[in-house]
Structures are given as structure tokens and as C-alpha cells.
Design a protein around this nucleic acid. Structure first.
Lengths: 221, 221
DNA sequence: ACTTGTTATTTGCAATTTGCTATTTGAATA
DNA sequence: TATTCAAATAGCAAATTGCAAATAACAAGT
């Protein structure tokens, strides 16, 4: 049957999110090739069936090869498709989102990476604006009942830092004492020895996640 | 570049969910062609780039042509991919889930459709077991803060019916009076003239959704 | 050493939300 | 007309959440 012969282009795109200045930032990279060469866009690339075990593996490979990054959280968002989204033809892009601490980008990330506050991300090529918007919406919702925002931070963090990560992800401020109570009841974190001095005030206790991956809770955070 | 020439197979699969006997059922169809000809599997098919505007359009087309159904809710779940999931080669399947009232299937659905309680769905070909499990998990979570379960019912329904739909979707029983209070506070439904007699007891008021699509709430239902 | 400023952390209570149970209502049936 | 059944409502107890004051720890200046 002829239709089986027409196979669309399959790509992956990764929405890299991090925290800076108490705001979620999107990590972008100037495109090396046409179309839209030179323009800032999501980190992405073709799926290579002969070497990628899955689209998730393709996303991890692209992150590694093009951005020099390894992430602790890489989750699939959804697939964007159609004949108009890419001038090269009918295509489907499996979009992923990844969270990583800000230091990672500076220390290990490719020098070509740029960071933009989410609110300022617009005018990206292809349908990348929609992909970014979708990723933020997913993260917002997921932040409400999971440990996801903790992955915007280093493995060891303070409770005020964790609260600010949640606030940035949720887009609203949280009551501090209620937040601590919840984190405690949900058994989300455990203390690690050491503390952080914030220069001119009482130092905060350091914590780490009690489970290594993203945990979903029954209740809201 | 050679890798651009190797394009994987792209398909869509739809997890059709409905309510029967207060339990979520999955609608399956015997496959017409190899591989796995004759076996029950998800309704699905190839994406046809020349006629499908998007994978969502492909899913709607497949539902229409292979199952004879039009659904009010068709949402993307996620994409399943890899070299092992289909003997025809490296493939990606964009999975969707759809909800529809039980009567629809009997009245308009193709005669080849079969309905199985979710708990009994296993041993499906390809990775369809995983796709069904993913769809149920997504629906469970989404049911907690949206009007999704209402789409398992006819457009006009009673509050006891709506509660049972939520209970089936959430997998736990709900307190009746607390449920009514929530539905009221969320302004989810509005009464329609007429009522339903349940044979031997007080008839229930009929309601319809106040918004036509799936609505997400800030609070839990 | 002592005071002041700043942020972390704890505590207690008020307000809200939720869970539970009993009561009332409306229709079919005997 | 009395009885039965499920729908719908009402009222209170328990749990959760929001808020604000009190306390703690450290740095820097007096």
C-alpha cells in the first residue's frame, strides 16, 4: 500500500528548564543549520533509528551531543505534528522537557547555550513557542503534586530554596510555614550534614530528596 | 546526511474508554491484517501525511473509518517508540485516549468492536498493554481535577451517575454529599428540564456540563 | 561583649475544607 | 395509605490550610 511508503520526518525537541533569579528560564541554542540557521531555538534533532533505542534515548543523545548536558529528569511532553510546522515537509516532533540546576549549564553546558526567562520566550522558529508553553503548563500542573521542582536545584538544597523553586514553578507564592509542614508530612526530604550561610543571617539546614526520582503525591504540595 | 533518509514508521493508536457496570472498559478491535491478524488490539493505523493535518486528525480518521465513531474527547497521551515494539521495524506510535458513552458503541460503533473491563486487559499485541496502562493512569490523574469523567456519560446525566463515573475513573469511592457540594461549588453542571425515573425510587434531576469541553479546576473534585 | 538587622524555623490559633451521619423528599408498589 | 428505595439536604466533627507572632542563629557594627 502506497501510503506506507510516505514516512514523515521524526525529530525530538527538548525544553530545558532551570531556575535563575527565582524565575523559570528556558535554555535555548542558536541553530547551526537551515532552516532558521542562527536563530535561537529548542535543543533538538533527528531521531536516528539505527542508534536510538527510543525517542527518549534520542532526546538524551541530542542533549549530550549538542548541549553537553546530562539531566536527572527527562520526561516526555507530547508530540507536535503537521505539514506546516517545518518547511522540510510533514513532520512529527516528540517534545521532552528536562529540569536542571542552573550551575550545571554554566559548569558543563555548551557555550552556545542561552537562558531566557520564560515570560520573554517568544518568536521562536517552527512551533517552538507552543512547545515551550506546553512544557511550562505541564510543569506547573505536575509541580502541584510532585517533587518535580526540586530538580531545578542542586542535589542539596535548603527549604527556602525549595519553596522558591515551587513558587517559580507554580507561578504563585506559598505560605512558608504551611509549606514546611507539607514537605515534612510528605516525607519528601531528609537532612544532610552541613548548612548554608546566607552571608548576613541565620544559616539554613541542607536537605536532599528522600527518593532519587520524581515522586508523585496523593495530596497537593 | 544519510540519517535523514531513514525514516521510522509513524502510527496512531487510540485507547477508547467507556463506562459499563460502574467499571471502566477498554474498547478493542480484532486486527484485520498481519502482524497479529485476528488478535484484539487498540484501534489504530498509519499516519497518512498526505491527508492527515496532524496526528490528532489521523486518530480521528482512524476512529471514524475503522470503528465508525466520533468522540467528544480525544486527547493525546504520549508517543511510544522503539525498534522492538513492531516487527515491521523501528516505529513510533502517537497514542491518544478517547472517552465515550456506552450507548455510542452499541448504536453507532462498528460491529467488530469488543469491550473489556480494564482489569482484564492484558496480553495485547505490540506494546498495547503499556499504552492502555498509561491511558488509565493519565485518566485517573486527570479525573481528580477536571470534568473528564463526565464524558463517559451521555450529554444529560444525573448526579449519582456522575459520581459513579468519577468513582470508576478515580478507582475509589467518594462521599456523596461532599461530591455534590464540590460539583456545585465548581459550577460544573447545570440542570436540564426533565428527570429520570430509576424504577422504584425517587427520580434524579438531569444535568449537563456547563462548558462543552473538558474543564480543569484549581481544586480537586 | 552587646545591640541590631536579617533570615530560618517553630508554634498556636483562626478560617476553611472535608468526611460522616442523620434527616427529608419524591415516586413506585403493595 | 403505608412502606420501601434511592435522591437530595442539613448539620456537625475532624482534618487541613492560612496567617501571624514568637523564637533562634548568625554577621556586622558599636
Amino acid at each position: 500500500m502506497a501510503t506506507e511508503l510516505i514516512r514523515p520526518i521524526l525529530t525530538v525537541d527538548v525544553v530545558l528548564l532551570t531556575l535563575h533569579d527565582d524565575r523559570i528560564h528556558v535554555v535555548l541554542q542558536a541553530r547551526e543549520k537551515a532552516p532558521h540557521a542562527g536563530e535561537l531555538a529548542l535543543v533538538g534533532g533527528y531521531v536516528h533509528p539505527e542508534e536510538d533505542q527510543s525517542t527518549a534515548a534520542a532526546a538524551a543523545r541530542v542533549l549530550r551531543d549538542k548541549a553537553g548536558l546530562a539531566v536527572r529528569v527527562l520526561e516526555q511532553l507530547m508530540t507536535f505534528s503537521g505539514g506546516d510546522r517545518d518547511p522540510r515537509g510533514w513532520s512529527a516532533s516528540v517534545a521532552y522537557y528536562a529540569l536542571l540546576p542552573h550551575e550545571e549549564i554554566a559548569e558543563r553546558g555548551d557555550a552556545s547555550l542561552r537562558m531566557l526567562p520564560f515570560a520573554q520566550v517568544k518568536g521562536l522558529p517552527f512551533d517552538h513557542d507552543a512547545i515551550v508553553a506546553g512544557a511550562m503548563q505541564r510543569c506547573r500542573r505536575r509541580a502541584a503534586y510532585s517533587s518535580l521542582p526540586a530538580f531545578l536545584l542542586s542535589p542539596a538544597f535548603t527549604l527556602p530554596e525549595l519553596r522558591r523553586a515551587y513558587e517559580a514553578a507554580l507561578g504563585r507564592s506559598l505560605n512558608d510555614s504551611a509549606f514546611r509542614r507539607k514537605i515534612d508530612e510528605l516525607r519528601m526530604v531528609e537532612p544532610v550534614s552541613g548548612s548554608v550561610s546566607k552571608a548576613t543571617a541565620r544559616p539554613a539546614q541542607l536537605f536532599r530528596l528522600s527518593k532519587s526520582g520524581v515522586v508523585e503525591f496523593d495530596r497537593t504540595v
